[in-house]
Design a protein around this nucleic acid. Structure first.
Lengths: 188, 188, 188, 188
DNA sequence: TTTT
DNA sequence: TTTT
């Protein structure tokens, strides 16, 4: 609730992939998204240069469900959130760090198609039992704006409800492993 | 100059160390700073929890020199910039990524002491020859605001002037000295 | 809750006066503050020019009480909020418009004195009966950050609880007392 | 260039009208735009309420020309800028104030149609002679991002070049008069 | 991996 | 005056 400092990120860009939505044992959704922002400029030789920056986004709860429902590869969105760097260990046991944007506000951009891009969406992971539902379409609709449910509260503890057992920082890589394994309480 | 997207970070926090200022062969300054933002909240047991986030900041040119001149461990500042993730190889030759905030605007906060914190400043690296000076105090003064000289132009190519020979992405953390020695609290 | 669009203001500046805190019949607090931001530049003649911008801030509820408790003329703060333009009628019955920043997040800046400026604080309006208190020091403390209680919900309807009788847009500047007396510098 | 404070506005919304672009005697373009942001929420009775906020935007130079060229009624845009309150006198000689967002960055949103809305564009004011052109399409293209040319420099003095004679604050209303009269150096 |  |  209180804080010493300001930690704010504002991004507008396009998704590089369909959102990856998963559910925690307590039923809370978590979504991971890759967002591209790019800039171009002329170098000293007058050549146009371009650089694309990829941002790893994490959304929780309702926002994650809305992302899974309405966003897909190519979608243009506005997001607001905070920077968070997670520590994890690679297979050699070395400390690694991954910086993500924990999103607490999202706007779909781009008119009546709801910010959709070219490809077809669909295909994200099924909701496991243990989730009593209740979210779904709620507040949905195209191009609406969404906020995290517990705005102002730190969202680095995504469990929301009861404390979870299990290791907070498993010895697994977070960043888009081919065999990324979501069988734990804490997805990364 | 142009861009597709928005990539903006806004931070207010305190420096964990004196800025590290270095000079590139063309005389341009580069500064690295660690900025802490923290937030606290009450958990389900009603206990106050606190989490500190450390941000790695990079400044170029005039802004870097101003940072070296006026900021020190404990200084409270406002910064605005963009996210940039650099790829580098560790000693095992594995790809590593470091996310930084490339700062293009900075404000010293905290009244007439110019945002100063507890400890005395000083001690950052000397300006090598090859730098014709020209910056120095310029625009300085207490609690002033500073902007990167080429705002709007991508600042991922910090050389500014003539193209540099040499590898752009050496097998070492660029801008991070081999013996770079932060406090243990700071995760980079 | 939902929204189409983004309406965000971020300011760092100093208060031109002690906050004016008042209480509505339902006990909710409302604070009005004048915040100065200034910029300076060199004109074509090389002369330094300066321009100060005055911003009218409005805070509600807990945030308003914290402002009344901890801020005073000269305090340096960070605020985040949204733009809102109110319509009202002057004594001639003509439509007038006032643009304000409805603040939903605030940070006191400036180190251990809690962002305090030169003068002594005090002197804001007494809490009327009809307010059962309960706020006070809550969340307070030096240099903490505060958020509006109903963040994400529109705050243009500050009553919060039960609907109020009475005209929503009286023929006078709402929240501006008839004999409201700012410094001459401040244009509202 | 320097500044004490931060004065930043970030908006995403739709234009209520085609941009009004005019040219100053020195050839610099000035554009005025109306941008809507809206939010909706449920009141105590569970009824959905909606509130639309209208923002008056001002752009200068290249940005103004790009706006005239590519934006129209309904266009969805992202803008970044600063708040500025102008003082003027109404016909009774009374002081009036108008708050505007002086835009220094703009992004067209909404995919391949370049952020366009429903209606046809066109119809804004012709470039007078006395303008040697030079801008035009420059940097243009759909959905690109644009920045004001003198970012960081105060943009409240839009003349850019030589100082202008003439009254800075004519006794005329600024806000969309039917017979708004642009025969002066300073458009409002 | 997006987008123009 | 926009948009859904």
């Amino acid at each position: 609730m209180a804080s010493r400092g300001v930690n704010k990120v504002i991004l507008v860009g396009n998704l590089g992939n369909d959102p990856e939505v998963r559910y925690m044992p307590n039923g809370n959704a978590v979504a991971n998204l890759s967002l591209a922002t790019s800039e171009s400029w002329k170098d000293q030789q007058g050549q146009v240069q371009e650089r694309t920056e990829w941002h790893r986004l994490t959304m929780y709860r309702r926002l994650a469900e809305v992302a899974g429902e309405y966003l897909k590869k190519g979608s243009q969105i506005y997001v607001e959130g905070k920077l968070q760097t997670r520590k994890w260990q690679d297979q050699q046991g070395q400390d690694r760090y991954t910086t993500e944007v924990i999103v607490d506000q999202m706007q779909m951009l781009g008119g009546r198609e709801g910010g959709g891009g070219g490809q077809q969406g669909g295909g994200y992971q099924q909701r496991p039992q243990g989730n009593q539902g209740g979210y779904g379409n709620q507040g949905g609709g195209q191009q609406g704006g969404y906020q995290g449910g517990q705005q102002g509260a730190p969202q680095g503890n995504p469990q929301g409800g009861r404390p979870q057992g299990g290791s907070q920082q498993p010895k697994q890589p977070p960043m888009a492993e081919p065999d990324f394994d979501f069988d734990d309480d804490i997805p990364f």
